[in-house]
Design a protein around this nucleic acid. Sequence first.
DNA 1: GGTTAGCACTCTCGGGAGCAGAGTGCTAAA
DNA 2: TTTAGCACTCTGCTCCCGAGAGTGCTAACC
Lengths: 339, 339
Amino acid sequence: MTLDERKARVLRAVVEEYIETGMPVGSRVIAKRYRLGVSPATIRNEMADLEDTGYLDKPHTSSGRVPSDRGYRFYVDELMPKKKLTADESRAIESLFRTKMRDVVSFLREVVRVVSETSHYLGFVLGPDCESVTFRSIHILPASSEKALLVLITDIGFVETCLIESDVPSEELAGISEMLSRNLTGVTMDRVADKAYSLLKEETSRYAMIVDQVVEFLRSVTMSEGERLYVGSPVNLLNLPEFRDVERLKGVMAAIESNGILKAILTRSHDETSPTIRIGVENEDESIRDISMVYGTFSAGSTEGKVGILGPKRMDYSKAVAIVSMLEDRLSGYFARNR
Amino acid sequence: MTLDERKARVLRAVVEEYIETGMPVGSRVIAKRYRLGVSPATIRNEMADLEDTGYLDKPHTSSGRVPSDRGYRFYVDELMPKKKLTADESRAIESLFRTKMRDVVSFLREVVRVVSETSHYLGFVLGPDCESVTFRSIHILPASSEKALLVLITDIGFVETCLIESDVPSEELAGISEMLSRNLTGVTMDRVADKAYSLLKEETSRYAMIVDQVVEFLRSVTMSEGERLYVGSPVNLLNLPEFRDVERLKGVMAAIESNGILKAILTRSHDETSPTIRIGVENEDESIRDISMVYGTFSAGSTEGKVGILGPKRMDYSKAVAIVSMLEDRLSGYFARNR
DNA sequence: GGTTAGCACTCTCGGGAGCAGAGTGCTAAA
DNA sequence: TTTAGCACTCTGCTCCCGAGAGTGCTAACC
């Protein structure tokens, strides 16, 4: 499963050339642009071998070669150089952490925007999951004569709020919140609503109005799994020749938007090496078999989230890895600081 | 500028047929499908007249007619039937208001989603603007030993939160928030940060740490103009024949995403009739001259927001108007209830 | 034996040519 | 005023051809 020196250099040249141009690459270009010191004919022989062993494909009998999924895989595993981000790119990413974000949701949206922008592909973030996030405290604040504001804070600094109807006097609201906070601290979010209900059920008669609303709020926070996934804008994909065909774009978009698919993949994966790379067929799901993704994990308190990039198979893996690695690091730091 | 009875019927038939099929429509189809009681030849004469007066266009010398922007305009002004939403459509919209939303931002995002879905075009919402939203109250809650949570509530029920560093004891935090709330209530959001600063500057020495952060938070809330515009996913547009050409889609997407454009149009417009319809060239901005938009205004407290639909010129205006009208109404109601 | 030049072969892509189909405009008759 | 008829126009499709790019193979070369 290993390749001799020269074959490896040819494969690398083909992959990099193809990543850059998007057009099948011929022996001529390789010989000219990548100084391997041999003639096109020799390159042709090597390419034929690489095709036999499955590292390269031919779109048709007689046009240049294109890396196969296996070829990309070998490239990212063995040949790919470690690219550094340009000053501009790292500045764009760092700026995320310099300006204070008001809440985690807008922060993660902003992360997605920056990832899409610097990678020129499609960025996404999967937020930490509820099952391992725990309750820290709840506050019930009087908001007007008939309204109160519920404010929930979790251990990783997520804040959720909700306006409810309430005519309960503010001292009693404070009492309830204090009691809930005291008893629920450390409980995981998926169990918090039930636990709150049992704590509050004796009070039901006195504060019936707000008890239901508080429990419903806690439940809805847990349920809002759907909102964990943030995906960037697909404008960048429109510039890629592989998405000239609207149908293909539609397929990918549908898959991503259907939301379940990407999330399932990301939550299922407990991966080995730091940024995970999924190339074409390596993706479980049919609908994204002709694109690639690069994603990594960041830790947020007791749990973790994912950040990644979706792009064509001929994506600039090296840069994608650099971006994802940097974000894994910075995001973990961010959540550690903001606990 | 008026049309005789039969010309009007022909124009209406052409517009509706074109909206439905997206293909240039010929005299034959009109005669067959729309019982006007005359032959294709007569229709042809009428169509020729309509072309002379600028209501119809011909893509090329000898193919069917297509409505011109002026034709669409006449159609929406004079000919368009008032469509009712189907049961499914109104149910989808009503469901927005039945399930309790946790915060205004996710609520508006959800509105955008539903609008896109029921219209099959691209929905958008422009939230109320800061200059006319006023401050209601602020709370500074202890969140952990070195953190505090700022919670800001505005008169229309918008809630913004932010975690800050703080080692100030909770009683004093309560004192500060109480003082701020008392003095700032009713102040418009664009002036609140400065006012807060002058209120707090005497305390600067004692609570230097948090004073700056509070002021910065208030300032950033005002600044977050950029987040006021919510735009749906453009997947629906991919299904339209007019966006088969990727370039066109790219143009529109870029214009929308650049954010300033759409917002400028919406904030500038103080329109006459309830749902405003902008057809093709009627749009000020070059980049959206070949699409149409239908949007309306909803009131939120002392200020207002916009909700609308972006689609091809041959969009189903009648349905778009129905959707927008319904939302103008419901959203105004929603913000009135949730003050 | 590995490397290279040469050459025949294959396949795509772009530009006509030709043809069916759809639709028009005009004319003349009802 | 309406309509039938007909010549005309323009598109879209298919087929065909030639140019160009690239390959695989063979035979010569170092």
